[in-house]
Design a protein around this nucleic acid. Structure first.
Length: 365
DNA sequence: GCGGAGATGGACC
DNA sequence: CTAACGGGTCCATCTCCGC
């Protein structure tokens, strides 16, 4: 085994790039008067004046208690007049994101966009010192191109890169060497692990497990018996900073849309006409990406915010709004007969995708 | 036992 | 003293069914 060539070829470095308070920062870039102000970008449902939730808040707004997920009405009660409340312009943020992702994609052939504001980049054969220099260069490029700051994490795998990026924000740069993985995680709470949400955290806490080092003392079989084989092994590995997930560009696996109804209802015609309106929008997105779908879902969110769904797989792949509308009546009917209570929000989704065959011939153009 | 289909829940941004 | 409440995606798990 020798050593140098081995180390070089095997050493995997993963970068996680996380654009800081992305929507709010985008607004501050295009509206300089917002520069030094607390900003909350909101998604309004349209049901009442202030129904909806805060999508993203900058740090000044967070300091006043306004953070993402907070109902707008609550945020305004806390900080009316002290925070700028702005309606989200998702198309604009998407266009900014696409330009930045193009920059990041050009850094390595191993690239993965994780969301509108996050991406992973993988490299090999570089020292940690070189990795830090690359990260600094990435930050500089994004700042120069879009005037946006980001936080970058460098780690030995996706999990560690992601956790590292979260360590210092905003405008951070954190390197965690592979041999530092366990120490880096040790004193964190289990809920700080990316992928451990409220439910899993509560379950671990009930077992007397609060910190990552306590989690690490659990044996694999106990974890698997309590959390299932997949989640069990994942927790076991994550607590040790182990993660084998590949960085790779993924294609979307579903297209969907959700809206809040003007008022809660279980009137089939009201629900159906709203659903069919969304059908065309979703089909248009699918066609824009040259995709076809085989499964159509209707999703209902009830008054207590619980989620129920009905879906149907078609005989053939389709890409039209009519194909969605065609089964929507049946799905909504089944939904209403199988669930009681009024619906607050409804959604549709298509999945089971396939790349569309080139159907257009040359003479179509 | 394995797949596809369908339903639900968890997690994250 | 709590509740209030968006839109979007991905993934895991479970059940049922046919093979």
């Amino acid at each position: 085994m020798s050593q140098q060539s081995d180390d070089l070829t095997r050493k995997r470095i993963v970068f996680h790039v996380d654009l800081d308070y992305f929507y709010a920062q985008c607004e501050q870039v295009r509206k300089p008067e917002l520069r030094d102000k607390p900003v909350a970008v909101c998604i309004y449902s349209g049901r009442t004046e202030d129904s909806g939730a805060v999508s993203t808040a900058n740090y000044a707004a967070r300091a006043l208690g306004v953070k993402s997920g907070l109902p707008i009405i609550v945020a305004k009660r806390i900080a009316a007049g002290r925070v700028e409340f702005i309606k989200a312009d998702l198309d604009y943020y998407e266009s900014v994101s696409m330009r930045i992702m193009a920059i990041l994609r050009s850094c390595s052939s191993i690239f993965e966009q994780a969301s509108v504001d996050e991406a992973y980049i993988e490299m090999h054969d570089i020292s940690y010192g070189k990795a830090v220099a690359i990260a600094e260069d990435i930050k500089k490029k994004i700042l120069e191109a879009e005037r946006l700051t980001c936080s970058v994490g460098i780690g030995s795998n996706k999990l560690m890169a992601k956790m590292a990026a979260g360590f210092r924000k905003p405008d951070g740069l954190t390197l965690v060497r592979e041999e530092e993985n366990e120490k880096f995680l040790e004193d964190m709470q289990v809920g700080d692990i990316f992928g451990v949400g409220k439910v899993t955290e509560a379950k671990l806490n009930e077992m007397g497990i609060h910190t990552v080092s306590e989690l690490r003392s659990m044996d694999l079989y106990t974890l698997q018996s309590k959390f299932g084989s997949s989640m069990g092994i994942w927790l076991y590995n994550a607590s040790r900073g182990i993660d084998d997930e590949a960085v790779k560009e993924r294609q979307r696996e579903q297209y969907g849309k959700i809206v809040t109804l003007k008022s809660d209802t279980r009137d089939a015609n009201t629900i159906l006409s709203a659903a069919n309106e969304m059908a065309d929008e979703v089909a248009t997105m699918v066609r824009a990406d040259n995709q076809m779908f085989k499964t159509v879902s209707f999703i209902g969110i009830l008054e207590d915010l619980s989620i129920r769904s009905k879906n149907k797989t078609l005989q053939e792949f389709a890409d039209s709004g009519e194909a969605i509308s065609g089964v929507m009546g049946e799905l909504v009917e089944r939904f209403l007969s199988e669930h009681e209570g009024k619906l607050r929000r409804i959604g549709i989704k298509v999945s089971n995708l396939s790349e569309r065959k080139m159907q257009k011939k040359l003479w179509d153009f």
